[in-house]
């Protein structure tokens, strides 16, 4: 799902920026024949129908239900803005929003980490790169629930590997996921870790697009590896970095499975770790208040759109398109 939604915006921006002069040559291209349009329709048809049925329709339904008070089995009555008015005074939601923001900030740390890892891997002459790539990408193809269960064991106070290691250093490790002071960081680390593999692959693809002669020229002028990284890699990678940033923020804002499995409903640190999406789940599916749940879900959608829009505005200041 992620690659689909995300490659498009960057491409569009890149095309728009890179070759405005080229646009002039467009009319000389062979005009699209009408029968091509028919085939195009036929080809996009199944995807369009699928997306409308399984994404668009439920989204509209959710939007409608957010203005209703719903019964547990599907009946609902119109209640206008009542759910949204309740949202404003919901202290649990405020806590969940704050937690979500923290996850997002922590998640962003994964972007520089994956850039550095990708740069190290892309070094010419490095062996077993394909092997590293596979290892790095494994978390991305593993189910989040499975990841969470494995980490739950790593974080175990008495039998976990992390505390075992700390114990060897003479440090008594905390109750990682049930101590309110460490739980949020513990969850954020897993989220970041799970996202790095994907980031490294994207970054490596981006690095391959940088012409090697830039580095050769800089080397000849006496630039060291750090200087080359900051003066060539980062500016030329900025479109990819931007793309990863947008992706990471959207993924972090929707954190749910990690909380559900790693924290769970009877955990004393739940209020300090609960995300907006988890709160939505509690209201809609445990407390049977789907109207209010829908209002929470829709507020999250608005938040995701707003944050992404701000990122697109800000990118003009720091993203370079060759």
């Amino acid at each position: 799902m992620a690659p689909n939604t995300m490659t498009d915006p960057t491409r569009r921006t890149r095309a728009g920026r890179v070759r405005p002069p080229a646009a002039a040559s467009l009319p000389t291209r062979r005009p699209m024949r009408r029968s091509d349009a028919g085939w195009a329709l036929l080809l996009v048809g199944p995807a369009t129908v699928g997306l409308s049925l399984f994404y668009l329709w439920p989204a509209l339904e959710t939007f409608y239900e957010s203005f209703t008070t719903s019964g547990p089995f599907g009946g609902h009555t119109w209640s206008g803005l009542h759910n949204y008015a309740t949202l404003l005074h919901d202290t649990e939601l405020r806590g969940a929003l704050l937690n979500t923001v923290w996850y997002t900030l922590f998640g962003l740390l994964g972007v520089p980490v994956s850039l550095v890892l990708a740069t190290l891997l892309a070094k010419p002459g490095r062996r077993f790169v394909a092997g590293y790539r596979v290892l790095m990408f494994l978390p991305a193809v593993t189910m989040p629930a499975a990841i969470a269960i494995v980490w739950k064991w790593l974080y175990h106070h008495d039998y976990g590997l992390i505390n075992l290691g700390l114990g060897k250093l003479g440090v008594q490790g905390p109750y990682w996921v049930s101590d309110p002071h460490t739980a949020l960081i513990a969850v954020a680390i897993v989220g970041m870790w799970a996202g790095i593999g994907y980031g490294v692959i994207i970054m490596m693809a981006g690095l391959e697009g940088i012409p090697p002669h830039y580095y050769e020229a800089a080397k000849m002028d006496g630039a060291g590896p750090l200087r080359r990284f900051f003066s060539i890699t980062i500016p030329l990678m900025s479109p990819t970095i931007f793309f990863m940033t947008v992706l990471s923020v959207i993924a972090s804002l929707q954190t749910f499975d990690l909380i559900y499995v790693l924290i769970g409903s009877s955990n004393p640190s739940l209020p300090q770790t609960r995300t907006v999406l988890y709160l939505f789940y509690e209201h809609a599916f445990t407390q049977n208040d789907r109207g209010y749940g829908s209002a929470i879900a829709f507020s999250l959608v608005v938040l995701v759109i707003a944050v992404t829009a701000v990122q697109f505005k800000l990118q003009k200041r720091w993203v370079h398109y060759e």
Binding site: P180, P268, T286, Q287
Partner: peptide, 21 residues
Amino acid sequence: KNSYAWMQTEGTTLAGAWTGQ
């Protein structure tokens, strides 16, 4: 009628007493 609605909050709130906070 909707027991889970209050039971869930009850559990989360009592966790604070159980940890001694």
